[in-house]
Design a protein around this nucleic acid. Structure first.
Lengths: 184, 184
DNA sequence: ATAGTTGTGTCAGTGACTGACATAGGTGTG
DNA sequence: CACACCTATGTCAGTCACTGACACAACTAT
């Protein structure tokens, strides 16, 4: 135990990203990751339910920030405004995370199996947003639609910003919102 | 070969659904499926790239129908109308498929790993729709948003219709479209 | 007829993941 | 302080998804 200042979990995630970047996800074994983190393969699977999951861990913070922002918005705010307000409130948080999320996204983009897992995480986040909207009295059907729409815009903006840092995330979100509203 | 009138592929799919329903996805091995279909495990993996894929095979027909409908719509049709027109044009096709898709969906709903794959297929279909819209001159950003929005409505309507046959799919699509438009 | 082509079987191997059991260190309670 | 407990890890054996290599049989085209 207490192998160093960092936790086992952190070291595993770090090792995983490094190895995935160097050798690719498919050519990296769980045992190699564990090795580099100074633990055994068994310990790897105690921390992450499968090999993909080691790359997906930040969702909780983001989900909390978004739900809080939705809950705290002024009464009478329209569903879509609730969402884009919430997205706006986490742009700095996301932009500050670029050093971690950029390499991570590079690995994901290169690996279909990881893209699948990412879709699943986005779907979970969509459900959380829909629930937050319902919490504010938005009817269920509307809440579902709004959450889907909003996540599509948010994910799109974030992905394109990860590819290219300029323009910033907030600008890209505005872009996406405009494209969306122009449909109606 | 020519073990019977049906193709190996069909028999594998049939066997898979039966076993998944009876024992669950996780407690069914690829070898068991192959056995029941009268072939070896190796042959199973020649037909399907992995164990999940045996449940996902009808997408091409649907995608074709949808893209054709979009391409053939009268000029000047709005993006969202293009989509809902297209969805409307495949409701019968989907409703006719219920005997196959219902048990299939039951298995998927019970299995997270399969839900992940389903999301991935829906994402692929979304991309196809977006491309079809772009083909008609819809600007890229708008096309992406519209396709996401539309697929959300379509998937939602279809899922809820699979749970409960009445009201019909067309009605549910109208419902979803209304919920969507009421957001703006 | 003969040469490809396609679909399958066989076999051996890798690697993701799991269950069972042991152990070490840390934490609390008497 | 001794003891019981809990948590994180290691070890080991096993299952199963999936793959590559090779062989063979039937069908197709020339």
């Amino acid at each position: 135990m207490t192998n160093s200042g960092s936790t086992v979990r952190d070291r595993l995630q770090q090792a995983a990203v490094e190895l995935f970047l160097k050798n690719g996800f498919d050519d990296t074994t769980a045992a190699q990751i564990a090795d580099r983190a100074g633990v055994t393969e068994r310990t790897f699977f105690r921390h992450f339910r499968d090999k993909r999951e080691v790359l997906f861990d930040g969702q909780a913070v983001l989900a909390d920030a978004l739900t809080k922002s939705i809950a705290d918005a002024p009464p009478g705010t329209e569903p879509l405004d609730l969402l884009f307000r919430a997205f706006g409130s986490v742009t700095q948080l996301i932009e500050a995370n670029r050093p971690f999320s950029k390499p991570r996204q590079d690995v994901i983009s290169a690996t279909p199996a990881l893209q699948e897992r990412e879709l699943s995480k986005l779907a979970a986040l969509t459900d959380i947003l829909a629930a937050a909207l319902r919490e504010r009295g938005v009817p269920a059907a509307q809440a579902t639609m709004a959450a889907h729409v909003g996540m599509a815009a948010f994910a799109d903006a974030t992905l394109s910003w990860l590819e290219n840092e300029e323009p910033g995330l907030a600008d890209r979100l505005d872009q996406a919102e405009k494209a969306l509203r122009s449909l109606f």
